[in-house]
Simulated assay, not measured.
Amino acid sequence: MLWCPEELGGLELLKATYITHAFAPHSHEGFAIGVIERGVEAFRHRGQMQYAPAGRVVLVNPGEVHTGHGPEEGGWTYRMLYPEPRLLEEAAIELTGDSWGVPFFPVPVVDDPEAAALIRALHASLEQPTSALERQSRLLSALVLLVARHAAPHPGMRPMGTEHEAVRRARDFLEAHPGENITLEQLSRHAGLSVFHLVRVFRRKLGLPPHAYQIELRVRRARELLRQGLPPGHVAATLGFSDQSHLTREFKRRVGLTPSRYAASTRSFKTGRLSAP
């Protein structure tokens, strides 16, 4: 079940059970925060395999590449929310009276029963016709507690060297042209590196090779277009997928839902009905 309460600024929430599904390496523009309700979720994150059993809280920062699968028979059930970075930044300001910038969660799996209970209560309230005031209050309470206990100021960035600047140029070019059939030679010329050097440093910096990052960008854009009501076939053609089945395959590997089910979920929310995946 996926839904996006309007009074929470379009915040996406997901309640799902996955038995055999495995998420491809992907990242989120915002945070991915949730609680495991049953089973165990395993995911590769910052080069290490993480295991989140029932009761644990999962905290993934924006832009961090990760996977996801069930290492045990029966899969896993979880409740997730995907807040924009500004919401966590506001929570940090509420705590300290000063801006950290966007907070950073250094540990991706934490044992915090109170935080897990707050996330469950937030989700439960959002499944019922509760007031906007209650929903917003529960969300802010959960985020403030998570920041207070588990976040830190974002680690200082080292001065950007030549390689990092080249990766930024390549990334910006891909983000500006998500539907174009860009070649590696084009990208390397734009970045100012050889094709071999670019592929190596791009993956080291962003966690994905250029072609996988391009698909990630296309899936993110597909979510926006589907929420606007565009049909999956049109979205696929607009964003450079070979056909609708290609969009469906890549979308489900990263989002956990097909494009049609994702679109139906957002439509059902607008009409007051929740849709299960």
Rank of each mutant, 00 (worst) to 15 (best):
I93T: 12
G101N: 12
Y82W: 01
F31H: 03
V35E: 01
Y82V: 08
H66K: 04
I33V: 14
A42Y: 11
G34S: 13
P62A: 00
H21L: 04
V58K: 12
H45W: 05
V40L: 14
P103S: 09
F104D: 05
S99H: 00
P106D: 03
V102T: 15
E94T: 13
T96S: 13
R56E: 07
P85E: 09
H21E: 03
L87I: 02
D112L: 03
G97W: 09
P103D: 01
P103W: 00
V102M: 07
T20A: 14
W76H: 15
A32W: 00
D111V: 11
F43N: 05
E72L: 12
D98T: 07
H26R: 10
I93H: 12
Y78S: 13
A52R: 08
V109I: 09
P85C: 07
Q50L: 08
Y82M: 04
E41A: 14
P25V: 00
R38A: 10
G55F: 01
Q50T: 09
D112F: 04
E41P: 04
G30T: 03
V60Y: 11
S99P: 01
L87P: 02
P85S: 08
F43K: 06
A115W: 04
R38T: 10
P113L: 06
T67I: 04
A22P: 07
V107N: 02
D111F: 10
P71N: 09
A115R: 00
F105I: 07
P108Y: 05
P25M: 05
G30P: 05
W76C: 08
A22D: 12
I93F: 13
V107A: 09
V35Y: 04
P62T: 03
D112S: 03
E64S: 06
A91G: 09
I93V: 15
F23L: 11
A115S: 06
R86K: 15
E29N: 12
T20W: 13
V102F: 04
A116E: 05
G68T: 03
R86C: 13
F104T: 01
A92T: 01
V65Y: 01
D98C: 08
L81C: 07
F31P: 08
E90A: 13
A22S: 15
I33Q: 03
E41S: 15
D98N: 11
A52H: 10
A16L: 10
P103G: 02
K15G: 14
W100H: 00
A24K: 03
R44I: 14
E73W: 06
E29S: 13
G63M: 05
V35G: 05
